[in-house]
Design a protein around this nucleic acid. Sequence first.
DNA 1: ATGTTC
Length: 483
Amino acid sequence: MTRVPPLVARDEFTWEIPAGSVPGMRVPGILFSNRALLGAVESDPSLEQLANVATLPGIVRSSLAMPDIHFGYGFPVGGVAAFDLAEGVVSPGGIGYDINCGVRLLRTSLGVDDVRPHLKALIDSLYRNVPSGVGSRAGVTLSPSEMEEVLANGARWAVDRGHGRREDLAVQEEEGRLAGADPSAVGDGARRRGVRQLGTLGSGNHFLEVQAVDEIFHPEFAPVLGLTPRQVVVMLHTGSRGLGHQVATDYIATMDARLAREGVTLVDRQLSCAPIASPEGERYLRAMAAGANFAWANRQLITDAVRRSFREVFHRSDAEIDLAVVYDVAHNMAKVEEHRVDGAPRRLLVHRKGATRAFPAGRPEVPERYRAHGQPVLIPGDMGTASYVLVGLPGAMERSFGSSCHGAGRLLSRHAAVRRFRFDEVTRALTERGIVVRSASREGVTEEAPGAYKDVEEVVKVAEGAGLTRRVARLVPLGVVKG
DNA sequence: ATGTTC
């Protein structure tokens, strides 16, 4: 039975579920939202999930949710929670089944008018070069030793093997390689699922989109990112595929067994977790890092395929088309980071599940090239509306452990969206707006119909109003490959 | 998200 916890307005963009609203809450729940978005969540079980997270041992300050919050496994999607390293827990449900699901943005030297006449050919070529859909398989199979290297080295493995440029790495979160990865913590089942999946898009909300820069909001930072109005860019959204999913499945089972052994009961069994300082917790974090590296290698191989498609369609060299990486973010991840708590610096394990790190200017984790401005935050919207580039602000460090939103956020479940929308109508509405769509399945289109999502404009306005991030550029879709 | 309910 769903209990809807009370929401108390704290300011225009901040709502609180006071500690004590749900039995066992150790800290309050904080939701960044506004009146326009609240209607979608007020009676939603995602708020109960936000409160449930606040019951976990060692949680620091508050259980947080971004404006794109929706119902997830255990933790809400859009959830952020930080834990004390000695007293706290790590929970796979706080990271998500798709470990290091994330977004990469590539820029081109082409303008809308250069691409429009070749748009259909370009989307067809991308569809051919990047396997997509449920169970999509890569043309190549990783050998056992290659798998070891992918899990240990992420995007760096791909670049070392000639799949990309050395300079691609400097502009990725963690430079595309999370330290602390232990391939031996990734089971045989997970490896088997991954061997034919590197360089594949997958399904669901994963996509590869050709977009145009529609509007610049931050005239100082946009040129540093190489973004100008009417420029064509490419956004890709995917993660660690079946490998990451199997890692999550395996460790949830391990943690469930430990909880049963210790006689611990949780308010929701989907909050399955283990102490950070335990063999199960430590081993999961090493496996999670390896899964994250698989995802970064995946996005790097897809980058390589995107460059191939542009060469094929435009008959120009890589240097002419540019296709430089602007940035690559993870939005399903847990990381040890330093944050100020009650005025003192403290190392915490920050879970972000459908939430993006959004560090401000000056943080050493921000690439040197961008450090004077802050970390780029990449926000895919829905395929009919718009996506955004944002930048982290000091307010994110003060309020959300350096985090912001990750997308528009679902309004309807997949099932509800398939019942609500018809494939032909969704496709026609997009075609009428000049958007070319290729999908591996009809469900890929109806599940992801623009009407299944919240208004991304409202989501980014809340993230800005709450002081977490500011808008840098708005990107509009020209063509999309859906999983 | 996911060999979409091993």
